[in-house]
């Protein structure tokens, strides 16, 4: 049964206010979720004031500025700062997105930053994604070919070619950077994360199901044809709404369901 409230140790308390005394004009307030594993306190919301004129355009720039200039203890993942690595996924202004792709100017008023929703927290804005990674592994996200012996001898050394038309079928699926913004925006995943695979993993499942070079299409479909793994998707469409790369996991899942009905 879904638990709609937070457990006792997760209830968010008020935190520290880091006031900016130097500049009072171009101030932007950032309210950030903090949790330190080294003391036994509950998570808290710290407030930081930054000078917008002396800060880069994106929310990630603001976070870096805070880490560099105000509070070096603040912890978050980041790497490429251009939406390619998927590290800086977090909940900004109520919606999951990549901090490096979210302009500060898009947020009216104070910027509230939480980690990805309904995830165990390692520290501050760093969630533990190991469950999601294990789920990704469970769909076997690699190319599978029938054993060489079953095929022609010639297949052994020949490259398996893919026509541009077949390659097009993967567009909108291979671009996923696995930031899990979509998965953690899905209410169904919040309540069923133990068994439901979630949009990101199902999008990857679709990516391998639709690969013309893969010979396990049917088996892959059979594997995910499960009331919990796949059919906890109720087309809520939060995944498509939140995807920072503009992909459409909900559509991919609908197509998977259709393929199962028509092909199995």
């Amino acid at each position: 049964m879904a638990e709609f409230t937070l457990p006792k140790n997760s209830i968010v308390k008020e935190g520290i206010y880091h006031k900016n005394y130097k500049n009072l004009e171009n101030i932007k307030k950032l309210i950030i979720y903090r949790w330190d594993p080294e003391n036994n306190e509950n998570p808290r919301l710290d407030t930081y004031e930054i000078d917008q004129k002396k800060c880069g355009p994106m929310v990630l720039d603001a976070l870096m500025k805070i880490k560099n200039e105000i509070d070096p203890t603040i912890t978050f993942r980041r790497s490429c700062r251009e939406g390619v690595c998927g590290s800086c996924a977090m909940n900004i202004d109520g919606i999951n997105t990549l901090a490096c792709l979210k302009p500060i100017g898009e947020v009216k008023g104070d910027i509230k930053i939480y980690p990805l929703p309904h995830m165990p927290i390692i520290k501050d804005l760093v969630p533990d994604l190991s469950k999601a990674y294990n789920q990704l592994e469970s769909i076997k996200p690699w190319l599978k070919r029938k054993k060489y012996l079953e095929n022609n001898e010639s297949n052994k050394l020949e490259e398996k070619k893919q026509s541009p038309k077949d390659r097009e079928k993967l567009d909108g699926q291979w671009e996923c950077v696995l930031c899990f913004c979509c998965t953690t925006s899905c209410p169904s995943y919040w309540w069923n994360s133990d068994e439901y695979l979630g949009p990101a993993v199902l999008l990857q499942a679709a990516r391998w199901v639709n690969d013309s070079r893969d010979s396990e299409r049917k088996n892959r479909l059979k594997d995910i044809n499960d009331s919990m793994k796949l059919y906890r998707c109720h087309s809520i469409m939060n995944c498509t709404h939140s995807c920072p790369k503009g992909l459409n996991p909900a559509k991919a899942i609908a197509d998977l369901k259709k393929a199962i009905v028509t092909e199995l």
Partner: peptide, 17 residues
């Protein structure tokens, strides 16, 4: 001991959901 990050209470009530 790890806390669960807030979900329903902080996610924006968007049209889709």
């Amino acid at each position: 001991n790890r806390p669960l990050s807030p979900h329903l209470s902080i996610y924006k009530k968007i049209l889709t959901s």
